[in-house]
């Protein structure tokens, strides 16, 4: 037997007027898309930050035959090797520049992907000097010429040339991700608007009666908005959770490029999910956790506006 009183019932029966099927499923799909887009945006942002920060200020200088004596106008120098000469010239760089010549083990690790873990001491390797310029300084334009005149064969690679392009690419990706997120939000708003309009249409007479009984606009709008917000939260959460496995997979595949060199995974599927989860960037984790709430807010806000506008037809 049903009880005469069943809590705070007002006859709107919104679980039937706004059924969970359509809105929930559609918001879940939007949540899925948004989660993937967020991941892309997070990646693009990391790339952009890397290239606009440290990497753009890096110079790599190769000195072949590094340990050979420097040839001067008076013949081979007795005291200075070619690499020492280059290092001496680099002292004229802007103040604060960090200059580091790679040690043999560092060099070996750098070359390992190409040469393997063999003993490379027999190979004639050039000396590699990494120069990190302080922020807001530029490389002297004639650096390569100067070094070459002094120590012939020296190659100066300026990462900034690549950096500019990569940064532009990363920023465009970021803008695209932003536009995609805006579109997803817009579609979610439209879906919620349509669902709310259907709900209002089926409950027209009941809303009029409630209004006549003294229900305020905020009460009626709040009831509808709470319903769509709940559905939106559920949908957003479902979409985000469904997006997690493919995201982790992508992350797993991207891991060798993102962090320190490590052995290429033999299996596509990771064995240690826990460790993998730890590699998720924290800002992406925050954004994903925020998604269901954003979905709920979009639904809540859209419905509030729609219902309040609809109610204006009643005095």
């Amino acid at each position: 037997m049903s009880r005469p009183f069943s809590g705070r019932k007002d006859g709107l029966s919104l679980s039937e007027a706004l059924p969970d099927r359509s809105l929930f499923a559609l918001v879940a799909m939007m949540g899925f898309l948004a989660a993937l887009t967020l991941a892309g945006a997070s990646g693009a942002r990391a790339l952009s930050a890397r290239w606009s920060g440290g990497a753009a200020q890096l110079l790599t200088i190769q000195v072949p035959d590094a340990d050979t004596a420097l040839t001067t106008q008076n013949g081979p120098s007795a005291t200075t090797t070619r690499v020492q000469a280059v290092l001496a010239d680099l002292a004229s760089l802007p103040e604060g520049a960090q200059i580091h010549q790679l040690t043999p083990p560092e060099l070996a690790r750098l070359l390992e992907p190409w040469l393997g873990e063999t003993d490379n001491s027999a190979l004639p390797l050039p000396a590699i000097i990494r120069v990190k310029l302080p922020p807001d300084t530029t490389v002297p334009a004639a650096l390569e010429q100067t070094l070459n005149a002094h120590v012939p064969g020296t190659i100066v690679e300026h990462n900034a040339r690549w950096g500019e392009r990569l940064r532009a690419l990363a920023n465009s990706l970021l803008a695209c991700a932003g536009l995609a997120l805006l579109s997803v939000g817009g579609i979610a708003t439209m879906i919620t608007g349509l669902a709310t309009r259907t709900g209002l249409a089926t409950r027209k007479d009941i809303i009029k009666t409630l209004h006549g009984l003294g229900a305020s606009d905020s009460y009626i709008a709040g009831r509808f908005a709470w319903r769509t917000a709940t559905l939106g939260f559920g949908g957003g959460l479902t979409g985000t959770l469904v997006a997690c496995p493919p995201l982790l997979l992508l992350l797993q595949m991207a891991a060798p490029f993102a962090s320190a060199p490590q052995a290429t995974p033999e299996r596509l599927l990771p064995t240690d999910w826990q460790a993998l989860a730890n590699t998720i960037p924290p800002d992406m984790l925050c954004a994903l956790a925020f998604l269901p709430f954003a979905a709920a807010f979009i639904c809540w806000f859209t419905t509030q506006v729609m219902v309040r506008l609809w109610l204006l037809r009643l005095p």
Partner: peptide, 28 residues
């Protein structure tokens, strides 16, 4: 009459009091 079709007699009659947020035991 304009009764709420999904509500019982008691819930229908309780509506004006509920909309004024009266305490539930008083309403009953």
């Amino acid at each position: 009459y304009q009764l709420m079709p999904d509500l019982s007699v008691a819930d229908n009659v309780a509506l004006p009091l509920r909309l004024q947020n009266r305490p539930e035991d008083e309403i009953q």
